[in-house]
């Protein structure tokens, strides 16, 4: 039994003893939000698909193929590459959920394709994704960062940028169609993906912040410089990708504003300040409304005149509210 001293103990995960409550909060959120593409009635979009021009169809398929590529990276490389650096066993469990949902996302684009497109169109788009220099450049840049031996916090930076920034040149298009009452079921599916990616970016960004605060000031500065440099590099690629895809529809400038807005949010997930000033980050309200339907924007202060109607708090039950 001498070996007992040298053998590493393998531990079973105990969800009743949490080192970080955020792990449980995010696990619960992700599992409640679980979905599969079969739950969305995509075939209802067939008539709407028929109203798109050939160019619009090709653009849409290409955009979705680009998104499939990013989900494939996160599923097979990105989320698994974060696991060896997990600080808690629960974090590893959350990352397995994230990895699997990325596979669901990648799979769901193929559901859209098989519902709306011909085999020839699909094959052409996948070939395009392998040959498009901008799409390949962003894949390569992210994959280099995920490589073994790299600083775990740099991997997290790349992961947050993929989840919270790189997807959005693609997500713009279904939101745009949705704002014009086109492909609305497809948009419902994309919103489920957007919701998941938002939790992923938030969680990995949170774990980044926990690691970052343990580093020396010099290391923190180096990581921050790295993050902004990587953002600039990715932004350069995204600009060209956006122009190539959206110039013909005249949407490029609108998409670029959406990129700025999402780049700022990605940086905020890491705990950093925004990069792009408000005047170039005010997203088209139709796109914002497509992102979060049924949720009005509130600015009570800019409302009618100077009179504030302050409601008097009524007596509510003192018991815990039923949320």
């Amino acid at each position: 039994m001498k070996d007992m001293h040298t053998t590493k103990i393998t531990r079973a995960i105990n969800w009743n003893r949490m080192d970080d409550e955020k792990d449980l909060e995010v696990w619960n959120r992700l599992t409640v939000n679980f979905w599969l593409p079969e739950k969305v009635p995509l075939s209802n979009d067939i008539p709407s698909w028929g109203t798109l021009t050939d160019h619009e169809k090709q653009l849409t398929i290409r955009v979705f193929t680009g998104l499939t590529l990013l989900d494939t990276i996160q599923n097979t490389v990105g989320a698994p590459s974060l696991m060896p650096d997990a600080v808690t066993p629960h974090e590893e469990a959350v990352l397995t959920n994230i990895a699997f949902m990325e596979a669901v996302h990648a799979r769901s684009y193929s559901s859209i394709f098989s519902t709306l497109c011909s085999t020839k169109e699909i094959d052409e788009a996948f070939r395009w994704s392998e040959e498009n220099p901008h799409l390949q450049a962003k894949a390569r840049t992210i994959l280099d960062t995920y490589a073994p031996g790299n600083d775990p916090l740099k991997r997290k930076i790349a992961s947050v940028f993929l989840e919270s920034f790189l997807f959005y040149s693609g997500f713009y298009l279904p939101m745009y169609w949705s704002s014009r009452a086109k492909l609305t079921n497809t948009a419902d599916l994309i919103r489920l993906i957007i919701r998941d990616e938002a939790v992923h970016g938030y969680y990995v960004g949170y774990k980044f912040q926990r690691g970052y605060e343990k580093r020396t000031e010099a290391e923190q500065q180096e990581l921050k410089d790295y993050a902004f440099a990587l953002m600039f590099e990715l932004y350069g690629i995204e600009n060209e990708y956006t122009e190539e895809l959206y110039d013909e529809l005249g949407l490029t400038e609108d998409v670029k504003v959406f990129l700025h807005y999402n780049a700022n949010k990605a940086l905020q997930n890491l705990g950093f300040e925004a990069l792009f000033p408000p005047e170039v980050s005010e997203v088209n309200p139709a796109i914002l409304a497509a992102l979060s339907p049924d949720s009005e924007n509130h600015d009570f202060f800019s409302g009618s005149g100077s009179s504030y109607v302050i409601g008097k708090a009524v007596a509510t039950e003192d018991d815990d509210w039923d949320f």
């Binding site: 990616e197 938002a198 409601g311 708090a313």
Partner: peptide, 21 residues
Amino acid sequence: RNFGATYALAGRIISEKCNVP
């Protein structure tokens, strides 16, 4: 906003519960 219809929902719930804007 990426959470769709539940964007800033906490504000709306508290508003209704407590009758404040």
